[in-house]
Amino acid sequence: MANGSESDRVRELQARLQQTGHFSLNPTGYYGSITVTAVSSFQADRGLPATGATDTVTWQRLVGVTRKPTRDELRPPTTRPVAKPDPQCMEGRVMCISKSSRTLTWMIDGKVTSAMDVRFGSQYTPTREGTFLVGWKSRDHVSTLYDTPMPYAMFFSGGQAVHFSADFAARGYEGASHGCVNVRDEKKIASLFAQVRTGDKVVIYW
């Protein structure tokens, strides 16, 4: 396996590297620059040539110091590991949103029921932090200020809302919102939109 590879075996490689502390993201199945760096680091630690490519010796050495990843470890719900919930998230119905991990977890009475990748506003249009309530919902909302679609919008502070972003889905973290909490996965935000009620809590924290 090497840079550009994409397979379930790459996903297992990343999960095993995660166990050793060399891979900080969740498995994606794509062997990109982050995986190359992680493999190089593992190789250097084991006295192997730090090529960044996974040859037979590197794979065998990795398998020898790790256990077989579980299904949940291989296919986690978010790109980055979900952060420890803020204490404000532990009671009631809460969209618990971590800026540090860039994840949203939907929690009911302290239990995580779903999780998804999110992104935030830029330094010029920052997403507000704190504890809020969902004020209103709009399934097919279009921003009157920016004239852009905001599907599955759940407003929590003025014009700021949690909503699906086609731009986020296409460009990933290269872009930013105008202050809203963008969700990458349309199926997950559609399911979340159906569950969230007006008055449910929104906690945004680092």
Rank of each mutant, 00 (worst) to 15 (best):
V10L: 09
R11K: 05
Q18C: 00
Q19S: 00
T20N: 02
T20A: 03
T20I: 02
G21W: 05
L25T: 00
T28W: 04
G29I: 00
G29A: 03
Y30L: 02
Y31T: 00
G32P: 06
I34D: 09
V36P: 00
V36E: 01
A38V: 02
F42D: 03
Q43P: 03
Q43D: 02
Q43T: 06
R46K: 12
L48T: 01
P49W: 07
A50G: 04
A53F: 10
T54G: 03
D55G: 06
D55R: 02
T56W: 11
T56K: 04
W59L: 09
W59F: 05
G64T: 06
G64A: 14
G64Q: 11
V65N: 06
R67F: 14
P69K: 01
P69Y: 09
E73R: 09
T79H: 08
R80W: 15
P81V: 10
K84V: 14
M90L: 11
E91P: 01
R93E: 14
R93A: 04
M95E: 01
I97P: 02
S100W: 12
S101W: 13
R102N: 10
T103E: 09
T105P: 08
T105K: 12
W106R: 15
M107D: 06
D109K: 03
G110P: 01
K111R: 12
K111P: 00
T113R: 13
S114E: 14
S114N: 10
M116S: 10
D117T: 05
V118G: 04
F120Q: 08
Y124D: 15
T125W: 14
T125G: 05
P126K: 03
T127I: 09
T127W: 11
T127D: 12
R128S: 14
F132I: 05
F132C: 11
F132K: 04
L133K: 15
G135H: 14
G135W: 12
W136L: 13
H141Y: 11
V142C: 10
S143P: 11
S143M: 09
